[in-house]
Design a protein around this nucleic acid. Structure first.
Lengths: 249, 249
DNA sequence: CATTTTTTTGCCGTTTTATGCATTTTTATG
DNA sequence: CATAAAAATGCATAAAACGGCAAAAAAATG
């Protein structure tokens, strides 16, 4: 039997039983326990399983949760949020994507602002329930657990029926030639719809996302009205963006 | 059994019972108390539980203040949740309404259960994101802030397209002649739809809701399959319910 | 096709880990 | 403060992991 075959069988078995023992596998797959151990180590190094003493388990409850990510580079995110909040005008209809920067923004929306906010992010919706006057519409669908946002066709079709003034979104990467890009196909699609539905597009991103390029394209740069980052808007990194007519905040 | 497995089981049990005894675990998991003690120490060192003399407690075991205890009756709700969780079978499609009792239930669903859960409650959805295998579908709509649930026509129309095996719901009041009743018209309507869409209806309620009658009718008593309360199922208060064919848990 | 090179695998001695047991110390409680 | 339960401590043992080595298999090379 080929090594790859074994690996697949091991993964299958873990999925099925939610655990495997090196000793069992050794017998089942007719190889020495050393080989099994090496297999498990490789699969574990690739992040497919969690190797433990005596066998392996599914990776499950290990991915750094939204909760944990929420607190990384909070300072930058907060400074972004502060700039972005100035763009909100009374009575607007706003779409917010689900990012920790957007969450930060949701926290600091002044209580005297009236607006309707559409979102598909649980934490953002929850945060907004504390605001006295904002009307919140949650876009339903299948939940993506690690990101705590809804995804799928329902979301796409809901958004495409909307018409919003503003759209605040986080991004996986942005540069002048490729525009906004995302690592996740589904998310990229949803973001396209959000942009489609919005008058103005405002991208919130920490500086490390600038000039990053991800797998899936969301929109060309000229469809973006404003980019809000933690950097000073006069930073030379933005020259080329400004030439394309993007406002930097 | 692998050490890690044991750790998971211990964590599950703490979540469920809000405490564990080393002696119990030793028997249940078929290892010596020394081993259990070592397990508890490790989990405690990682900050997952609080080790105490004789066993362990959840980390967030903040003593509920007098005020909280007086109104929230968390203990009752937990005992209800514990009974209710046994009704969930692998692979089922479940609708959950938004009540604190249901939230309690969401917290203690064992991690080896597979199910699809529809809900319109933000806290419940958020809680369920911590479960490794449950598929969550959030029912979108306009958010009712104080209750943190979605309401409105969107919710009604989404639910009416569903077909579920089980439906867990809280209630404003229940008695034999009027059936389930609600103080809020909109909620009563949504609950009607939920019942319409479900094979079995399970009502979770604390004993103070029994024989209460609210303004709006939801469903007659005979459409309810099971009532789960904090009382003993043999309590005479249930006689008339049983006559109508309702199971009491 | 012959022959290197690389990969895979099993084996073996050593080291580490998990666990139970016996003994002593600590803790809870009437 | 006496006593029983629980925890800590030290030790023994078996299972598992590790590291190096060499044979076998597979792939690459000329």
């Amino acid at each position: 039997m080929l090594k790859e075959e074994r690996h697949h069988q091991i993964l299958d078995k873990i999925k099925l039983n939610r655990k495997v023992l090196s000793s069992d596998l050794s017998i089942e797959l007719q190889v020495s326990e050393d080989t099994i151990r090496r297999d498990l180590n490789e699969l574990s190094a690739k992040g497919f399983i969690k190797k433990v003493h005596g066998g392996a388990l599914p990776i499950d409850a290990k991915a750094p949760s939204y909760e944990e990510r929420k607190f990384s580079s909070l300072k930058e995110k907060n400074s972004i949020a502060k700039k972005a909040v100035s763009l909100i005008k009374d009575g607007q209809v706003i779409i917010m994507s689900g990012s920790t920067t957007n969450l930060q923004l949701a926290k600091i929306i002044p209580s005297d602002i009236n607006a309707t906010i559409y979102t598909y992010s649980l934490p953002i919706a929850l945060q907004l329930t504390e605001h006295p006057s904002i009307e919140i519409i949650f876009i339903g669908g299948k939940l993506n657990k690690p990101a705590q946002v809804t995804v799928g066709l329902d979301v796409v079709s809901s958004i495409s029926q909307l018409r919003a003034d503003l759209c605040f979104m986080g991004t996986g990467g942005i540069n002048v030639t490729n525009g906004m890009t995302e690592p996740n196909w589904e998310v990229s699609h949803i973001k396209k719809c959000m942009i489609e539905a919005s008058e103005k597009v405002i991208v919130l991103c920490t500086s490390n996302k600038i000039n990053e390029v991800k797998r899936y394209s969301v929109t060309p740069i000229n469809r973006i009205d404003t980019i809000v980052t933690d950097l000073n808007s006069k930073n030379e990194i933005f020259y080329s963006f400004k030439e394309k007519g993007v406002t930097i905040l």
